[in-house]
Write a protein that binds this DNA or RNA. Structure first.
Lengths: 244, 244
DNA sequence: CATTAGAATTGACAATTATCAAGTGTTTGG
DNA sequence: CCAAACACTTGATAATTGTCAATTCTAATG
């Protein structure tokens, strides 16, 4: 692991509050690895031996069943993944593959489990992290069950704009076929839906999204902080989403 | 709270391992409440002030958006709910209503948050509980995205049979319209699907499910421990589901 | 026991979404 | 720069799922 990695990892909520000595001990047993693009680094069902931290590149979490697969999330630096499997010492529920050349830190799950018994501040951080992850998946399930595909696309586009600071135009952060899978639809359906949304305030130009009529898009997307928001730190207002 | 409630609560994984004095302290600030049938006891968006424990009756967790609603889970004794919202001191993401007359213990969220900083064993229990909840929602999201409604129904029916010990016949634990919403479909669609599944090894008689051809149903349902399983305690085999 | 409200079913139909196939565009590696 | 691979789009069609309306069934209540 490079020495310049440590501060970046240390800044993560998960590691921010633990004692320095404990952080160093955890990092001492961890190591970095670089994966080429398109490598399936985690296969669902395998035992969870390492907490993963993305430092560079990007990673797709996906699930498979009966010959089908779907994208569950895309992770970018700096973030951790598959914490829950590590904690429960259980098989991964999702697979992971790199979307580009990616540098990952691997933290042994057993050290992790030992550490939160030893360092209360770290335990509290793990609790907060897991609670946030849980709520994030619940939001996801809500969008899948309550919105149809057109509404999911519209709210996704609006949310991305807000995440980028309310800009009127931005580049999609992922390929469209991957976005389609993430949103629970086929690439063909996404393609047609994006076209149809040109009547509702957006315009596509390749991977560029241009919001031409935010009011109209908002009426369709009905953004909701209990779905599209994220758990902000107390005191921050966050996404600028309405209460309901 | 009744004195006979305490052992039941104490047996929950969440409270099993904490110091007795701490458990008593937590319970001392908690109180019981009885709700009539059909009462909306939690409204999504409200601040999370109490961890809830169902002691008698049953509770539906549901989500609302834009005039629609869907069932997210049904809880029965003895179990806790909305732990994550309490921990993050954030608004509830789901609403809750009683499905029958229900007795609930309310544990103040602030006491809860103070307690896991104070009692390491409790912190570890919270970590394990949250990780299990997270994995449970991920399984849910997987079934929604990877299976069509027929497959969701089939795997639900098979799973319930296995949970009841592999019985060939059992009563549905919830009303069909609620089951439909839980499975992400309309009551009409569920009704028709159940009828169609009579060609695939099941037979319905009111709320009774009769599995007439387990092999055939299994071929359709393709049960998968990474979706239909639950995080068993190490050493136990659990649901009897295949690895893939 | 009769009444009634709500659950469940069924049919007809509409909307949504997926599939298949063909083609266009874009990127990448030799 | 060219060729190949792959993403994306579009059209035609099929499958799935939802909606609306009308019964039938079931369970709770007075």
């Amino acid at each position: 692991m490079r020495p310049e990695d440590l501060p970046e990892i240390r800044h993560l909520h998960l590691f921010r509050d633990m004692a320095q000595a404990n952080f160093e001990s955890l990092m001492a047993s961890s190591y970095a690895q670089i994966f080429p693009q398109g490598l399936e680094m985690i296969r669902q069902g395998d035992p969870a031996d390492f907490l993963h931290i993305v430092l560079e590149g990007s990673v797709e979490l996906f699930a498979q069943w009966s010959g089908r697969e779907c994208t569950m999330a895309v992770l970018r630096p700096v973030s951790t993944f598959i914490l829950a499997a590590c904690i429960r010492d259980a098989p991964y529920l999702m697979s992971a593959r790199t979307l580009e050349r990616t540098r990952i830190i691997l933290v042994p799950a057993s050290d992790l489990r030992a550490m939160f018994r030893h360092d209360t501040e770290f335990a509290v951080s793990v609790i907060n992290e897991l609670a946030a992850c849980y709520r994030s998946v619940v939001r996801n399930a809500k969008t899948l069950k309550l919105r149809n595909s057109r509404e999911r696309v519209a709210s996704y586009l609006l949310r991305q704009s807000l995440l980028a600071g309310g800009v009127a135009s931005y580049i999609l952060p992922v390929e469209k076929r991957l976005l389609a899978s993430y949103l629970g639809m086929t690439p063909e359906n996404l393609s047609r839906t994006l076209r149809l949304l040109e009547a509702d305030g957006i315009k596509m130009d390749g991977a560029r999204v241009i919001i031409t009529d935010r009011e109209k898009l908002t009426v369709l997307a009905q953004p909701d902080r209990l779905i599209d928001g994220s758990d902000e730190i107390a005191g921050q207002t966050g996404s600028g989403l309405p209460d309901r």
